[in-house]
Amino acid sequence: MTRAATLVAPAPRTAGQPSLPRRIVADRNGLIGVVLVGLLVVVAVVSLVHLGQDPLAQNRTGQLAGPSGAHWLGTDQFGRDIAARVAAGVFASLRVALVSVGMATIVGGLLGVLSGFAGGVLDAVVGRCTDVLFAFPATLLALALVAALGHGWFNTAIAIAVVYTPIFVRVARGPVLTVRESEYVKAGRVLGFSRSRLLFRHVLPNVGAPIAVQVALALSWAILTEAGLSFLGLGTQPPSPSLGLMVSDARNFFPDAWWTLLFPALAVVVAVVGLNMVGDGLRNALDPRRS
């Protein structure tokens, strides 16, 4: 399971302080991560126009052809253009990651904030449910959920969201427990502020930073998990392009056709490393101790 983000509440931005994007790119890891993720986004967008090649088009006379002017990254065992398939695979991975992490953020963040702020029975129930999910190895739970839900990218996204929701519950609940006992929240209660005002005006602003960092880290984990599930044949199904599925198919042709394995595997590495570096840069940018 990917490590949860740990971060103290960010200090208010003062006059003359650089904006958040500038603070991220000012950090070396953040800058490298932004460049790598930006490259992936460009590749995913380009995939929508097929790079001049259809990722599903087969060419029986051009099987396992090496990189050339006609096929920048070569072709696979069916003569399909690997560059077009890698680009489409990046798009598919980002789609699954964004949907799954979006669902986990909304559900997990909401449950974490409400349970931490309300306490009592709700906190106990949510805590026990997250403990149950944490008891299962993340990959094994994702495999079981995909097997139960069936194949397809959306079912894969749901499985990843369920696995990762407990992390967001913990990440959101921790700062809420600290903030709700702070002096200004106690003063608000004495002054008769409503619970909704305390929650939205004083508690939620202190939860955004750690959740933002966790989102970046979760996206990298989701891409890796989607690739792993597709590698095992439980994620994206052929002939749809998938980085994990391409790596799985390429095992039979490596090292004679090394390009069939290298480029999809490299895309997965770039995605995971880039998003992790963005998370590191975001954490450093939001850490008031570094201001």
Rank of each mutant, 00 (worst) to 15 (best):
A218M: 09
L7M: 01
V163D: 15
A83F: 09
N276L: 04
L217Y: 15
W259M: 02
A216M: 13
D81K: 10
A159C: 08
S242G: 13
A9Y: 07
V176D: 14
G274N: 08
R95A: 12
F91V: 05
G38D: 14
G62F: 04
F154L: 13
T156P: 12
E226I: 01
L56C: 05
E183H: 08
G281Q: 04
I24G: 04
D27S: 09
W153E: 15
A172V: 11
A15N: 11
P67F: 01
A135M: 14
D81E: 06
A172G: 13
H151F: 08
F200D: 02
Q77S: 12
L111H: 00
G66C: 00
L177A: 14
S220H: 12
S47H: 05
R180V: 14
L199V: 07
L191Q: 14
P241N: 07
Q58C: 00
T156M: 15
S19F: 01
G188Q: 08
G108N: 05
P166W: 12
G228H: 12
G16S: 05
G281K: 06
M277N: 11
T236W: 10
L198T: 09
L191K: 08
G208C: 01
L111G: 02
Y184A: 05
A84C: 03
V41P: 03
L114K: 05
F263K: 08
V171G: 15
R85W: 07
R60A: 03
P205S: 09
G208L: 06
D54F: 00
H71Y: 12
P10S: 05
G16H: 07
V46E: 04
F193M: 15
L149K: 10
Y184M: 04
G116S: 01
L141R: 12
P205M: 08
V207T: 13
P238D: 14
N276M: 05
Q63R: 13
